[in-house]
Amino acid sequence: KGSANRARARLKVAKIHARIADRRRDSLHKLTTRLVREDQTIVIEDLAVRNMVKNRKLARAISDAAWSEFRSMLEYKAPWYGREVIAVDRWFPSSGLCSACNTLRDTMPLHVRTWTCDCGVTHDRDVNAAHNLLAAGLAVTVCGAGVRPQRSAPDGQSATKQKPSRREP
Rank of each mutant, 00 (worst) to 15 (best):
R83W: 13
Q162R: 10
G120I: 05
C143W: 01
A87H: 06
R151H: 07
K77M: 11
D118H: 11
S68D: 12
R90S: 09
Q40T: 08
R113E: 11
T41G: 04
T141S: 15
G120W: 05
P93E: 14
S165R: 11
G144N: 13
D46M: 01
V112N: 04
R166P: 11
T116P: 06
Q40I: 00
Q150Y: 00
D46L: 01
K30T: 00
T116K: 12
T33Y: 02
L35M: 12
D118T: 07
L138T: 08
V43E: 10
R60L: 05
V121F: 02
R71T: 15
D118I: 05
A61D: 03
F92S: 00
N55P: 06
V121A: 14
A135N: 09
A130W: 08
C101M: 11
Q157L: 09
Q162D: 05
A61K: 06
G144V: 07
A61R: 03
C98A: 14
A78M: 07
K57Q: 13
Q157W: 00
D89A: 12
V88W: 15
G144R: 07
R71K: 13
S165V: 06
R71W: 03
Q150H: 03
Q162S: 14
D126F: 04
G156T: 08
P93K: 09
A100G: 04
R56S: 12
H123W: 00
V112W: 09
A139T: 06
L47N: 02
E84L: 15
P109D: 07
L58T: 09
D126R: 03
W91H: 11
L97D: 06
N128I: 00
C143L: 15
K161A: 12
I62S: 08
L133A: 00
G96D: 02
D155G: 07
D64P: 15
R166H: 11
T103L: 10
S68V: 08
C98Y: 10
D155Y: 00
I42Y: 02
V49I: 11
M52I: 03
L31C: 01
G156A: 13
Q162M: 04
N132K: 01
W115Q: 12
R50N: 05
C98V: 09
R60T: 10
S165Q: 13
S158Y: 14
F92Y: 13
G146E: 06
T33S: 06
R125G: 00
L138P: 00
E38T: 14
P154T: 02
G96V: 01
